[in-house]
Amino acid sequence: MLQVIKSVLAAFLGVQSEKNRQQDFQSRSPWPFIVTGVVMTLVFVLVVASVARWAAS
């Protein structure tokens, strides 16, 4: 799971190390990546929203 989160985080930046990339390739199901991606997007939204709230005050 941690691995998936790390990969998705790397994906947001468009960067992934060689070793991890190989590992990602091994898993055939994309679902963990998709679900994690959506969850991370929500986390991203919350982070940006709280930064915006902080900046606005």
């Binding site: 930046l13 468009g14 960067v15 992934q16 190390s17 060689e18």
Partner: peptide, 11 residues
């Protein structure tokens, strides 16, 4: 066809 250092920099 890839280079992690460069990719990190240009991100």
């Amino acid at each position: 066809h890839e280079n992690t250092t460069v990719e990190v920099i240009w991100t």
